[in-house]
């Protein structure tokens, strides 16, 4: 479904992705973990070309993603949930959810609104359709952002640290929604520090450090028997 092939990314002199090769299968739940600055976010942002690789190839659904076709290919295949939610503050929740379906996916207003109400129900915020995003708590905003991503009905949803900007008491409500989604046949790539979530929903965990993938495997393998020293250290610090 998604394939990164020898992807390198430089920010100026800084080599943030070093020859990353990664394949995500259809319906797979892939969780990317690792210390900050390890290139996790950049990796996931390469998957929809928010960052264009300096070299290497990205394939979505067998098609190579290029700067020419990115708008169309991304529109048809992927959605993203951001750390900072990035809801559109000048629109109500309903408008946030219906904008792309109406303007990009050629749905009628009625269809788009039905879709929006459906996904608002999925994330448990049916009563918030007509409020502005800034009146909501962080956890609620992120659930709206997930609903917005779902309204595109993409096969792939990318999550870039979806709970890192949240108050501790609202993290779980967002994770619960994501766990619910994981039961569907959506391909999910999740960058997160939530190890409990990784253990619970991941089909595969990838560990990155210094721009490289240094370990990958099933959650059982990853959490109980990692080979790499860096991973052991990391897990030792994060899981108490």
């Amino acid at each position: 479904m998604i394939k990164l092939e020898n992807v390198n990314k430089y920010f100026g002199e800084l080599h943030v992705l070093k020859n990353v090769n990664l394949e995500v299968k259809e319906g797979e739940k892939l969780v990317i973990v690792g210390p900050s600055g390890s290139g996790k976010s950049t990796t996931v942002r390469c998957m929809n070309f928010l960052e264009e690789p300096t070299s290497g190839h990205v394939y979505i659904d067998g098609k190579e993603l290029t700067s020419k076709n990115k708008t169309k290919l991304v529109r048809e295949t992927t959605s993203m949930v951001f750390q900072q939610f990035n809801l559109y503050p000048h629109m109500t929740v309903l408008k946030n959810l219906t904008l792309a379906p109406m303007k990009l996916h050629h749905k009628s207003k009625k269809e788009a609104e039905e879709l929006a109400h459906h996904y608002l129900e999925v994330v448990g915020l049916k009563d918030k359709a007509h409020v502005y995003p800034t009146t909501l708590s962080g956890g609620q905003q992120q659930r709206i952002a997930i609903a917005r991503a779902l309204c595109a009905e993409s096969k792939i949803i990318l999550f870039d640290e979806p709970t890192s900007a949240l108050d501790p008491e609202t993290i779980q409500e967002v994770l619960d929604v994501m766990i619910k989604l994981a039961a569907e046949n959506i391909t999910m790539v999740v960058v997160t520090h939530e190890m409990g979530f990784a253990r619970q929903v991941a089909d595969r965990v990838v560990f990155m450090a210094d721009g490289e993938i240094i370990e990958e495997g099933t959650p059982e393998h990853f959490f109980t028997n990692p080979k790499n020293e860096r991973v052991k250290q990391f897990l030792g610090k994060i899981i108490r």
């Binding site: 708008t71 169309k72 993203m80 951001f82 990035n86």
Partner: peptide, 12 residues
């Protein structure tokens, strides 16, 4: 983030 959200949805 507003530009990125729009791009990620597929707006040109």
């Amino acid at each position: 983030g507003q530009f990125e959200a729009a791009s990620s949805q597929g707006f040109g």
